[in-house]
Amino acid sequence: MIQGAATRHPSTGLVHQHVIDDEIAQTSRAYEAAGAVEHQPRLDYAPYRSSLLRHPTKDLHHADPEGVELWAPCFGERDIDPLESDLTIQGGGEPIGERMVVTGRVLDGDGRPVRRQLVEIWQANAGGRYVHKRDQHPAPLDPNFTGVGRCITDDQGHYRFTTIKPGPYPWRNHHNAWRPAHIHFSLFGTDFTQRLVTQMYFPGDPLFALDPIYQSIVDPKARQRLVATYDHDITQHEWATGYRWDIVLTGGHRTPLEGDLDVERSDDEETSR
């Protein structure tokens, strides 16, 4: 805490960044002192003000997955057009910004590929603006960019998107709050219990330390797992920069069966348990 510094900004009434910084630092110190590793974000994380009334106050209840929980919904060619993985061709022209390829593998906790499964992404444009009616950030919309993509992983668990690097954007968690640039990812595994929604970040973002959403993952190594790696082998000559980001979905139980891969290979043949 800066001695004598005001807590709230006089015109917005929002707390200053230094107040959030202090809260983040306090939680971080307590986490290090406790010595137990946490892999997931805290649900109860006060620096992210919207979490105050929206986190469960009781411990999550232990359950053994059963029935449908041991399976995941099936998605495939019927659901997705291959063109949906290219976010730069959805308008009448080229979107503005740094064209890039984001690719990686989706694996389960034992390192097995999550095959033929749905990956959905959404993001702000290069100016940090979402195509969303509630986004009031006065940055330009790009008529050639919606920021929405979908794809199905291949037999090795690979996904691949071509898109534009998103910009950072302001929000009202506190005064002068800015989110680090990120792409939202929605993922399914081989079991429903592996369902994950998360955000991918870019290396070296100066806003990491200031962002309560990123910092809600109190373990430094764990939050580093959300940061993509620049990969020159993915970068394409005179076309696009390349980033690699692998995803691990845990919580699954069922050992994939040999026949799983053939599910829905034939469009009119229905398979069920």
């Binding site: 694996l107 906790g109 959404w122 969303h132 920021g147 929604v197 809600s216 993952i217 797992r225 959300l226």
Partner: peptide, 26 residues
């Protein structure tokens, strides 16, 4: 050495909030 054994070989990718802007995507 510092981390307790997880029941899986690979550490999980952490989750993050879905945020306020998913309505035009999901």
């Amino acid at each position: 050495a510092a981390a307790p054994a997880l029941p899986t070989a690979l550490a999980p990718t952490p989750g993050q909030t879905v945020g306020p802007f998913f309505h035009y995507a999901l």
